[in-house]
Amino acid sequence: MGNSNIAKFVFILNSNKKMPGNHTDAFRFILLGFSDHPQLHLLFFSMFLATYMMTLTGNLLILTITMADAALHTPMYFFLKVLSILEICYTSVTMLANLLSEDKTISFTGCAVQMYFFLFLGGTECFLLGAMAYDRYVAICYPLRYTHIMNHTRCSEMAAVSWISGLLTSLGHTSVIFTLPFCGSNEINHFFCDIPPVLKLACGVTYLNEIAVFMVALLFITFPFVLILVSYLLILLTILKMPSAQSRHKAFSTCSSHLLVVTLFFGTGIVTYLRPNSAYAPVTNKLLSLFYTVITPMFNPLIYSLRNKEVKGALRRTMARNCFLKGNKWLNQTHPQERRSQPR
């Protein structure tokens, strides 16, 4: 099934290369990025590089801690580990091309592939955040049955469904957009191949395609978002019934990090993709895209670590363990005789 979908997708890309029309370079797009402010080019490059390195370092740190510390081998941190992997890939898809290449042109196939992986990872994250909300709902509303409901098999299945849903979303979106004829301007007023700016370059009647994109976005963005809202509504009702103020505070602090991430990610995504193409504004769209492609992945490790005592405790234990192992290694290398002569 997967191979036939990929073959179909490649066929669509190849067939579009034969598009008729009066165009300058329809098979290579030009990513304008922030070229309307050329004096700020160095500033934008430095900002992208700094945020990418922070995103990479922070998410790799979260990934290392959750794998190394046995206390974090729980469903909540299993999903956090998957989220960190997603954020690394998600940011790399949009930012590496801007950082590593001075040539801002991108081939027709390259643009389609970039959009495919961007939507694949973004759609997966939508459903993964929904799974994380469900995990918090079970933990707070059914604490005695939590380990039974959220077992390893259930968590793996939910993560797999998230990846498959993202795969189907990206395949549908990309196929719909890149079956359109492109003629006239080949300049994409954006810093990567996103849906709204690419759709603006399509010629002919695109109304039905816009409706199709809107419906798919409505389904694959709104469904996880509604699931998250319902989960947190039930969580809120459960928390308000707790007799202890300390229990209520602990429950709120457990969910606040995830809720903050959801607000940042879904808020900007909904404004970008669930509005008509006629309302597309390049500057606004770039700023919104910066939030869900750059800002949110960068802040995720900070939100989950600085506001989470378990992660900070695991980080301290990991650092202490590494220092202890390095100290023992140094002692064995510098005083091997003394170490062997010590009684056991």
Rank of each mutant, 00 (worst) to 15 (best):
K200D: 07
S175E: 01
R28N: 15
F225E: 04
Y273K: 06
I270A: 05
L240G: 05
Y146S: 12
P224D: 04
L121A: 11
Y232L: 06
C141R: 07
K329I: 10
F220H: 03
L83I: 11
F11C: 02
E310W: 10
A139P: 10
G33A: 01
K8R: 10
G172K: 01
A217P: 00
L315H: 10
L236Q: 06
K329C: 14
M215G: 07
N332P: 08
L199R: 03
R248I: 04
L129E: 10
M54S: 04
F291N: 07
S257V: 13
Y137P: 11
L325C: 10
F223L: 14
L227E: 00
L167T: 02
F192S: 00
T263D: 13
F29M: 08
S165H: 02
T64P: 02
S253R: 12
L31W: 03
L72I: 14
C89V: 09
G172C: 02
T206V: 06
N186E: 15
V161L: 10
T293Q: 05
L128H: 14
L218A: 05
C89K: 10
C203T: 13
H41E: 09
S278M: 11
I177Y: 00
L100R: 04
L233Q: 05
T147V: 14
N322P: 06
P297I: 07
A160V: 05
L96N: 06
M319Y: 07
K312P: 08
E102R: 14
L40N: 04
A279I: 12
M298T: 08
G2V: 04
L40V: 04
N16M: 04
L42H: 11
T147Y: 15
P301W: 03
E157D: 15
P196M: 03
H249P: 03
L32W: 00
T263A: 15
T153M: 15
T272F: 05
F9L: 03
M47P: 02
T293N: 12
I270M: 10
A139N: 08
G33W: 02
Q246T: 13
F108R: 05
C155P: 05
I149C: 14
V82H: 11
C193H: 05
L240E: 13
H335Y: 12
S84L: 01
A160D: 11
T296Y: 05
A71T: 14
L287M: 12
G327T: 11
L32E: 07
N14Q: 11
V311M: 15
F178L: 00
L290I: 12
C126A: 09
Y137C: 13
P181H: 06
T318R: 06
T51H: 04
E102T: 13
F182R: 03
T64W: 14
T169D: 08
G267K: 09
M95K: 02
T293R: 08
S35R: 00
G110E: 08
T254N: 13
V161I: 08
G327H: 13
G313W: 06
M67C: 15
L264C: 07
I62L: 11
E310Q: 14
F118V: 05
D135K: 02
K200S: 09
L219N: 09
A131C: 11
